[in-house]
Computed example of a mutant assay.
Amino acid sequence: MSEDLHFLSGSKEEQYRSLLPQIQSLIEGEEDLIANLANVAAALKEAFDFFWVGFYLVNQDELVLGPFQGPVACTRIRKGRGVCGVAWESAATQLVPDVDAFPGHIACSSRSRSEIVIPLFKDGVIWGVLDVDSDQLNSFDEIDQVYLEHLTTYL
């Protein structure tokens, strides 16, 4: 597939429905995980103009920063700390409308206002998380959760 993506300007759900098959085609057949994660982060950032999109990968007892798009980020996050660490520990998506109201939020950037974090599973084991931040409050909802969780099944 060409590395050019085509973005719709409709509803959020229409945008996801158009984008996800393109991402699947983009990474299909590529065996390198880092290359695929980098392209997924870039596609999501470009399509939705999110403030920050990236991956943290499990490395022993920490999440370590992986491919991302956006400003510099925290490099290591302990299990149970911040939104990413809670998503890892709980094995559940974290949908946070206001990061300032999230107990123990780690402020990698003071401009981050809302966040969604999806655990990445392989054979029932979490190997990382997809982290998406917005510089606006209440940016993420169930539509984001459904489509981003589906997207992670491609990885």
Rank of each mutant, 00 (worst) to 15 (best):
S139L: 06
G80V: 05
Q22I: 06
D61C: 10
R111I: 08
L148A: 15
P21H: 07
L137E: 02
V72P: 02
E14Q: 03
G128A: 11
E14R: 01
Q60T: 09
S25Q: 13
R78M: 06
R113Q: 12
Q145R: 14
L33H: 05
D4I: 03
S134H: 05
F51T: 01
G128E: 14
G124N: 04
E142A: 15
P71Q: 01
K12G: 01
V99E: 03
A42N: 05
F121Y: 10
K45W: 02
L20N: 01
L57R: 15
T93W: 15
Q136P: 04
D133V: 13
L95S: 12
L155S: 05
N138K: 03
D133Q: 11
D100R: 03
A42T: 06
G29V: 14
N39V: 12
S139Y: 09
E149S: 13
G70S: 02
A87C: 12
L26Y: 11
S114Q: 09
L26G: 05
S9C: 07
V83E: 06
N59E: 10
Q136E: 05
I143G: 04
N59H: 11
A43C: 09
V72T: 01
E149C: 10
S90N: 11
I34E: 14
R111L: 14
S25G: 12
E149L: 09
A91G: 08
D123N: 10
H150F: 07
K12S: 03
E28M: 15
D141E: 07
S112H: 13
G124M: 02
K12D: 06
D133Y: 15
S25E: 11
Y56D: 02
A73D: 04
S90P: 09
S25P: 04
I126H: 06
F48K: 00
F140V: 07
L120T: 13
D135C: 06
L155P: 04
L151W: 04
G128H: 13
R111P: 02
D135H: 09
V129I: 11
R111H: 12
S2D: 02
G70V: 01
R81P: 05
L63D: 00
K45S: 01
L26I: 12
N59D: 11
R111K: 13
P119E: 12
E3G: 10
V146D: 07
Q145P: 05
S90Y: 08
N59C: 10
G80I: 02
D135G: 06
I143V: 13
E142Y: 14
G66W: 07
E62G: 03
V125T: 14
F121M: 08
P97R: 01
S25C: 13
F102M: 04
L63A: 01
V99Q: 04
W52A: 06
M1Y: 13
H150Q: 09
